[in-house]
Design a protein around this nucleic acid. Sequence first.
DNA 1: ATAGATGCAAAGGGTTTGCACTTGA
DNA 2: TCAAGTGCAAACCCTTTGCATCTAT
Lengths: 124, 124
Amino acid sequence: MERNTKQRDAIRQVFEEIARPLGPNEVLEAGRTRHAKLGIATVYRTINSLVDSGWLVPVELPGEPPRYERAGSEHHHHFRCRTCTRVFEIHGCPGELKDLAPAGFRLESHEVVLYGLCARCAAD
Amino acid sequence: MERNTKQRDAIRQVFEEIARPLGPNEVLEAGRTRHAKLGIATVYRTINSLVDSGWLVPVELPGEPPRYERAGSEHHHHFRCRTCTRVFEIHGCPGELKDLAPAGFRLESHEVVLYGLCARCAAD
DNA sequence: ATAGATGCAAAGGGTTTGCACTTGA
DNA sequence: TCAAGTGCAAACCCTTTGCATCTAT
């Protein structure tokens, strides 16, 4: 990320304006409204360098390719809408997970993913 | 799954004897101790048909290819050892997740994944 | 001017599929 | 016997990489 190119500006803008985890293809499509010649390889390369620099963090959900979101929010989890497949950040955390680990196991971290309908899809 | 072949017997035995979620490659290696000529395509085909028939269920963890485990256990979650990468079934469930979904969202299901060290790796 | 960035197309890794051969019933 | 099942290799999909070209500085 040494130079400021139009492609990188477009990609950063996408993440700033669409405040939820995005996959490479979503970034490509949204980015093309800002810079029509954006290519998928540049999207991947830019996402990877934004992750390396700490500006993005990967959001991995079970059974799906990674999405990415802006770094900086505190510990949180995600909600995936099974209708529109969009993913949203949720706040709060169940806590109290230590009891679930078997005896002798050392618990270090956890993931929680909620599934259902987002407000828009639930409104139908 | 209409015929009983040596390959399918070997694969079913692997799942019956190793009681934790297994990926296709683990199944291939363990299966070859029972039937040396087992091929990876057969492992994939057999796993898929065992899933279709309800004998196996996929276990998807964030950022990893699917593993499979025998169907039939009640609602549960998984623990992944970050040292040996093996995955274990855990019992219990945090419950009380409804409050985490944003207003207007409809919660239908959830996943919880714990990470840390299994008993064997924690014993070092 | 020139090293970094881009776009295309080819290469990679894991999974699936086409096809000729093998095998269970 | 003979259709279902297998193994191999090619095809696939998504992601990464090589290379010639372009561009920010």
